[in-house]
Write a protein that binds this DNA or RNA. Sequence first.
DNA 1: GTGGTACACTGGTTCTACCAATTCTATTTT
DNA 2: AAAATAGAATTGGTAGAACCAGTGTACCAC
Lengths: 259, 259
Amino acid sequence: MQTNPSAAFVFRPVPKNRISEDALAQLVDMIVSGEVKPGERLPGERELAQSLSITRTSLREALRRLENMGLAAVRQGDGIYVRDFRREANLDFINFQAGRGAELEPQLLLGMDEARRLMSAMVVSLAARRADASDIKELRRVAGECPPDGSPELLSGKWDYDFYLTIALASKNGAFVCLINTMKGMFATFRPMYSLLDEGRRESIRDLNLRLVDAIESGDERAASAIVEERMRQDMEDLAKRAQSPEKRKGKTRKAGAK
Amino acid sequence: MQTNPSAAFVFRPVPKNRISEDALAQLVDMIVSGEVKPGERLPGERELAQSLSITRTSLREALRRLENMGLAAVRQGDGIYVRDFRREANLDFINFQAGRGAELEPQLLLGMDEARRLMSAMVVSLAARRADASDIKELRRVAGECPPDGSPELLSGKWDYDFYLTIALASKNGAFVCLINTMKGMFATFRPMYSLLDEGRRESIRDLNLRLVDAIESGDERAASAIVEERMRQDMEDLAKRAQSPEKRKGKTRKAGAK
DNA sequence: GTGGTACACTGGTTCTACCAATTCTATTTT
DNA sequence: AAAATAGAATTGGTAGAACCAGTGTACCAC
């Protein structure tokens, strides 16, 4: 346990407090909890703003995102209507929920992980098919710069996300790049659950990633996918192990307050 | 409200002219065209609003979406910074671009199609693995209700989207449902390029979809994926055919809207 | 150099008034 | 009585100004 005595703090990624975000969170909760049902029409902007103790202007900024997530439909002269989030919500909604650590339905949570795995395998295959010399160089650089155990970049999942983004860029598919970006919050959500926090895993991850780059370089799609699967398998294994002795876990949970 | 029997237009998604959307489009163009470069800081809200001949209030609503797409970062007391859309944009960006018929980079366009195919095959596999009796019933219903040739629901891609959404629901993976929803604009974009507009194809599509439901019902992942591939192949084939005799195409293009 | 401090930015929020689209209702017309 | 019509009433959309709250910078004292 090589604890960093002095600077365990580093960057503060989330001081952002926009009142419209708070209001948005409340509205999302209302919808997800079923307090307001799909198809239902909620109060007008003026009344709603007053209920939330904010201005109509701020409320409207929240509403823009709300309809962007697919949770509401706003029509001039008519009103604000709640949509069925189970059928019509999009990834922006998932990210918003994940980003603020909101409790997601377990079914949705598992689905996110499944999607992440399938997606990763796919992107890796494409990368193996199309990566050129400069891509390989960049991949090797990022893979080699794997941060030390316990570093915030590793814990937060930021680095892991960067690595997969680099792979996506190597896949020459802009849509997948966008997809990875869309799921950024998703990545950050799952990392803390997995095993990157365990001592020793870091080297394993690093080796696996470098081997992955090799596989991509040689254009071996099957091998590349297999490595990704192996990585996921190891993650699950460690997760199960930790579930038996939860005290061994070191990283702090993501609900760390201001102080 | 029932559909008007006289007009075959169905719903008008309405080119809702929210002024903030127009402003947003201009901002996006600025960024995508490279007129403003990544990392660059653009004028303050007040000045920017004046340049666009709108109010700061409206501009701010546009900015919320802009940063939501990953194209800009807004920081209080600091300013508005342009981000690298090639690396940081998300699917919301793609949908916005596709939804307004903006010319996408060909590389991105191909990537979208590729992603759509791979994704479809994946979701279908999952559905084959998990669909229960009620899912099958629903799937069969939607597949059977395939609208007639030339109907706006078919042309717009709305029905095709509904069908795949139903499949996603049957896959029991909420994340994929959200993913499909996120790519709604993408579906609408590709439909007009494909062959649904051709006479006769409608029956073919319908048969293929019903066979797909059968495959899902019997839990045959491989067969289900194969049918999806077949469908895509037919689409590409018809597309190539039409490229030789472009006059045969019937549907109107989607560049209707006024400015 | 270090640390404070005032000031000039920039975005965030609030207000108020008014425009524009939709819905509802009472009236008129047939 | 039924349909068409005109006109509130309601709701979202825009405008514009004022003020609050963080940031960065230059200047100053130590």
